[in-house]
Structures are given as C-alpha cells and as structure tokens.
Design a protein around this nucleic acid. Sequence first.
DNA 1: CTTCCTGCAAAGCATTTGCATCCAT
DNA 2: ATGGATGCAAATGCTTTGCAGGAAG
Lengths: 140, 140
Amino acid sequence: MSTATLEQRLVERDIRPTRQRLAVLRELSKEPNDATAATLWRRMRARTNETIGLATVYRTLALLNERGVVDSLSHHANERCYRLCKDAHHHHLLCERCHRVVELDDCDLGGWVEKVAGRHGFAASAHEVEIAGLCAECRS
Amino acid sequence: MSTATLEQRLVERDIRPTRQRLAVLRELSKEPNDATAATLWRRMRARTNETIGLATVYRTLALLNERGVVDSLSHHANERCYRLCKDAHHHHLLCERCHRVVELDDCDLGGWVEKVAGRHGFAASAHEVEIAGLCAECRS
DNA sequence: CTTCCTGCAAAGCATTTGCATCCAT
DNA sequence: ATGGATGCAAATGCTTTGCAGGAAG
C-alpha cells in the first residue's frame, strides 16, 4: 500500500500523520497476519534509519484501534495482537497450527444476529465471529 | 448447583477435589456473568471461614480452563474473565453498558461455518460468536 | 513415604504514565 | 508561542513461579 494511502487513512480520522505513526502503519501493512506491539517495535528498530520508542508504538496502536484503523485481538492469552483493518465489517479464520489469520470480507449473518439477540431482549450493535481450524497449508 | 455435582465435575476430569478447588467452583457457580480471578478471591476472602491464596485461584482457574470446566474470556482488555461452562458449544451476548454476559445455548451456524471455512481452504474445528449490544434492562 | 497442592512473597512481563523535550503550526 | 507528540525511565497491575510447609493416599 502506498504511503499516500496510509497517510490518507490517518488524516481522514483526524490523526496527525507523524513520522512515527506512519511508520507503525507501514509496518502493519506489511504484516499479513497480526503482530504484537513489541514485534513491530523490534522490526522498526532493526532498521537503523527509523527510531521510535516502545511507548509510542503502544500509544499509536491504541489510538489507531480507537479510530477503527486497526483491530485488536487477544488470542494469545498474554499479549495483545494488532492488525490493519481491511474493511468495516469482517470476521476471522484462525489457523491453530501456524496462527495465520484470514480476514473474511463477506458477512451474511445480519439476520441471524438480529434474531438471536432479539430473542434475549438485546439490541445488537456489533458482532464478531472467529472460526478456528487448520488452513490449507497446514492440513497437507 | 449442589456441591456433589460440582465435585463430580472435577473428578470426571481427573482433578482432585480439594477444598480450594471446590470453593472456586462454588464461587463461579454463583456468578451469573463472568468474574476475574481477583474478584473471586476477594469474595472468598470476605468469608472468614474460607482461606485461599490468590495464586491458588489463578492456578485453579488455569487448570479448570485447560480441562474444559470454565471458559476464559478477554473482553476487558487488561484482565481475563472466567465463567463456568454451561454446555459444550455456545456463544455470547455481551451488554456494552452493564457488561452482563448471556450464554446462548443454541447454535445453528454449523452449515454456515463449514461453507465459509471451506471457501478459504480451512478445515474448521471450532467457532465462537460474540454479539455486543444493549441488554433489555439497559435499553429502557 | 511419596506425590500432589497450597500460601506467601518474589519475580516477570506487557502495558501505561510522568515528565522533560521536541516538533509543527 | 502553543498544543500536541515523543522518548525514556519509572511505575502499575495482572499473572506466574520458587520454595518450604501441608494434606492426602
């Protein structure tokens, strides 16, 4: 993804596109799965021309999450993982072996959700589905 | 739930039903929603006739979770929550205001899950749905 | 006796915060 | 100048672990 597009994502949500924030976003956009704050930080640190503090990575991820730019998952019990949002609404397929995460971009569950929620007096505002299993590669 | 039944749940999974483990289980069975390790511990401590260490609560919850007696959720970002499993397979309704958790005991999503997973080459082994919204009480 | 369990206190670790400095407007 | 952003280090808070004493069979 071009830097221009990444910058646009920030500006759109009223986030000042600082060097560090763009760096975090760029790093996330290279990651097909999800990554922890520390992982992203280490990768950026490894490049001598990019300096950034771990606290800034945390602050940035929290901000991006709050504004809907990144997802925050917590499958690995003790550490939170982040990934760039692809679309507004989607679900996840998780591979139990290699921990690959596939984002599903189709969701036709709307009706079912309303029905189930209504049955318990709930007004549903969001839903999230996670399917765990083995990916094609790990199956073979 | 009777103590006998609780004890049975432990014995069935080859867990020695010690006083502390039963206490944790009994405390969990009184909790309609989910609770953190510290919350359960404080409640048990409050009763002068029950002594238990926080570490033991953590160890017990981890064990029970591993053996499928309790669920471990992590909605509240920083603290893990536990709740007694009702059935083998179920989903959750979460109230965004009061944090009540309702366990759905019906799941008619089987076909959908297989279809979606298969489309991406996955062999699904488990799935989890969480629906967030406002419960009847918080809506009014 | 031997094995597993528990309590306490001491780590461990991810995450947050205080504060001085820096940067952009 | 002024308000936000950052880096570093210190603090926080949940969770785990080491170890000595205990309970159970």
